[in-house]
Design a binder for these strands. Structure first.
Lengths: 245, 245
DNA sequence: CAACGCCCTTGATCTTCATCAATGTAACAA
DNA sequence: TTGTTACATTGATGAAGATCAAGGGCGTTG
């Protein structure tokens, strides 16, 4: 895990002018990229930053369009997907608070990003961000490490999509999501599900109905409890067994 | 496509001492990473390089082991896969001549790499390569761009695994492979298949039998011709339609 | 509060692909 | 040559998950 040492130091740098304790931007950035920055570099980042609030189901950016910005999700969550011409949809990931989008700095967006709920986003112009990187090689290095991690996650997802049963897919999904939430809210058993069953299905290569049936099955088996906002994991060992690598 | 301007200039730098026209190392590196290098940087690279020949079905490196090297495949091809404890296998990619492995520079290997045929590999110690990058930020930048491209390919593969039928999967696979061979041998219709049907199945989330049936179907429909060493694409338009994004 | 829409769940049936089994084919060795 | 082995193909059957259909919970809106 990344240390959060730089989280409270540069209070005044938050682009929206609030104290960090109130500012989701400053609060979460300690979780990922910005903890690698020196104060002067943070300042440079913040000069570029623009804080934007999106409503539910709004599009941050679309597949194939020219990439304009790098995004840091500071609150809310986002679905990332590709569409086939006939309407089939594959969700390639979900972005949670603290996650970055567009760090590969490619010219065009590889997928569409839509908010699942109201969301706050810290946006940096791609070109300016790219220039900053050229001036700060160690930041680029950090970025490259993050890209390697992302690639590794994508390959794990290939295993899930290609070689796991419906029940294993849902179990792996819940475990994976729980671990990501743990970094954000510290909970070891709660996994809020801001996305619909349809979204989960499009992420796992299943239909809504199958996702629903597998969730019901896991609940019947006392592995999880389904709550209005997501699930609580009753038997992580059982889920772990279903999703073992 | 990358230009090959630096392909023939630094002839003497080839680590195995042959002239470039005979040296698969020098011939292929123009295709990817090394075309971004200045002569002095190429020299630095070559000082690190070790040229190794592997036999068929040998392991280059294994999943979870400490990553020792960066690899440039100069001849032959390689399968990259992850295993589940119960033996299910997901191939996450195939490496062809000119491809690099281990450029993410992570501490541990994310997958196992095994040769499909006899293969020549140019190997660089990971740590030394990493140090070189720290000294050459523009090379790191180039690497990061390549990582972004790889991530994008991984996401395309997620769409194939999650949302395509067996026939579409096989068609996309053949088209994708043909495009990669085109960069190597220039052919627009030939797609050699150094991997077995089992390998293709483990790449596409299918069984051997289904792969075989779909190949037969495509051949019956006059979209491809099956040859001893691979396939010839008779009707690329039909295959394209099956694999349209 | 009633009506509507949206999402989730559940059941019945169908399709695709996996599984099981047999046969075919090419490379290689004795 | 024949036997052996590994891989590919083909057919018959089965099962996982998709599809089709209906109903239920819940928040929103008039």
């Amino acid at each position: 895990m990344l240390d959060s040492g730089s989280a409270d130091a540069p209070l005044t740098l938050c682009p929206n002018g609030k104290a960090s304790i109130e500012c989701s931007h400053c609060k979460v950035r300690a979780l990922s990229l910005c903890s690698a920055l020196e104060p002067d570099e943070l300042e440079a980042m913040d000069k570029l930053a623009r804080h934007v609030v999106f409503e539910k189901h709004q599009t941050l950016f679309s597949q194939s369009e020219a990439a304009e910005s790098v995004y840091n999700i500071t609150a809310g969550s986002v679905r990332l997907f590709k569409l086939l011409p006939d309407g089939r949809r594959q969700i390639v990931g979900f972005a949670l608070p603290g996650d970055f989008l567009g760090l590969s700095l490619s010219e065009r967006n590889a997928f569409t990003a839509e908010t699942l709920s109201a969301a706050s986003v810290c946006q940096f112009p791609r070109v300016a961000f790219s220039d900053l990187l050229d001036a700060k090689p160690h930041l680029l290095r950090r970025l490259h490490d993050m890209a390697g991690h992302e690639l590794s996650l994508a390959q794990d997802q290939m295993v899930i999509l290609g070689r796991r049963t419906a029940e294993e897919k849902v179990a792996s999904f819940l475990m994976g999501l729980r671990k990501r939430w743990a970094r954000i809210d510290g909970s070891t058993v709660r996994a809020p599900l801001p996305m619909s069953r349809q979204d989960i299905g499009d992420y796992l290569g299943l239909t809504v109905e199958t996702v629903s049936r597998m969730m019901t099955k896991l609940a019947r088996d006392k592995a999880i409890v389904i709550t209005p906002d997501g699930v609580r994991l009753l038997d992580p060992a059982r889920l772990e067994a279903l999703s073992e690598t």
